[in-house]
Computed example of a mutant assay.
Amino acid sequence: MSHSGIVSNANVAALSLFAAAAFAASPVDAHQAPTGWTYPWACCSNMDCQEVEDKSVSEKPQGYVIQSTGEVVAYGDKRVKNSPDGEYHWCAHQAGIDAGHTICLFVPPKGF
């Protein structure tokens, strides 16, 4: 084996390690909340959920109001779920005819 073959193999090994490290350090999987819990597949199809700021969701007597769309999701609606990390998470169609339509809304428990 020539010296250039050794260098080439070393480069390949180094690039493989770099790629593995970069993959491991990549942002949270699209199907997971930033704190690491997994969104239910039925809510997001691996792409439609995101954590949102508290001010993105407000409450009125009829239910939760999604500020960006004006949509009201009733308190008793089956799309309303308890948030495992105490943050709001909104799962909505991001494109197409149903864009902005809520699939699931994770809300902090009242005592959180």
Rank of each mutant, 00 (worst) to 15 (best):
S2R: 08
H3D: 12
S4E: 13
S4N: 09
S4L: 01
S4D: 14
I6T: 05
I6E: 05
I6C: 00
V7Y: 07
V7W: 05
S8E: 15
S8V: 09
S8L: 14
N9H: 03
N9I: 03
N9E: 03
A10H: 05
N11C: 12
V12C: 04
A14F: 05
A14R: 10
L15V: 01
S16K: 15
L17I: 13
F18E: 11
A19N: 02
A19G: 07
A20V: 14
A20L: 15
A21C: 12
A21D: 04
A21M: 04
A22L: 08
F23E: 15
A24G: 10
A25Q: 04
A25S: 11
A25K: 02
A25P: 01
S26L: 07
S26D: 09
P27R: 14
V28A: 10
D29V: 10
A30T: 14
H31N: 13
Q32K: 15
A33Y: 07
A33I: 06
P34D: 13
T35V: 10
T35M: 11
W37V: 07
T38Y: 12
Y39W: 15
Y39L: 15
P40V: 10
P40K: 11
W41H: 14
W41P: 11
W41C: 03
W41I: 11
C44Q: 10
C44W: 09
S45G: 04
S45L: 03
N46A: 14
N46H: 12
M47K: 15
M47S: 14
D48C: 00
D48Y: 05
C49A: 08
Q50G: 12
E51K: 03
E51P: 06
V52S: 08
E53M: 05
K55I: 06
K55F: 01
K55C: 04
K55T: 00
K55G: 01
V57R: 03
V57D: 08
S58F: 00
S58M: 07
E59W: 10
E59K: 14
K60E: 13
K60D: 08
K60Q: 09
P61Q: 09
Q62C: 00
Q62A: 13
Y64C: 02
I66N: 04
Q67T: 14
Q67Y: 00
S68W: 08
E71M: 07
V73N: 01
A74L: 02
Y75L: 02
D77R: 00
D77V: 01
R79K: 06
R79N: 00
V80A: 01
S83C: 05
S83A: 00
P84L: 04
D85I: 01
D85F: 00
D85V: 05
G86C: 06
E87A: 03
E87H: 13
Y88F: 10
H89L: 03
C91P: 01
A92C: 06
H93G: 01
H93N: 08
G96A: 03
I97T: 11
I97D: 10
A99S: 08
A99N: 02
G100F: 04
T102G: 07
T102R: 06
I103P: 00
I103T: 04
C104F: 12
C104P: 05
L105C: 05
L105E: 10
F106V: 09
F106D: 06
V107M: 01
V107H: 03
P108D: 08
K110L: 05
K110V: 10
K110G: 04
G111Q: 13
G111E: 15
F112M: 08
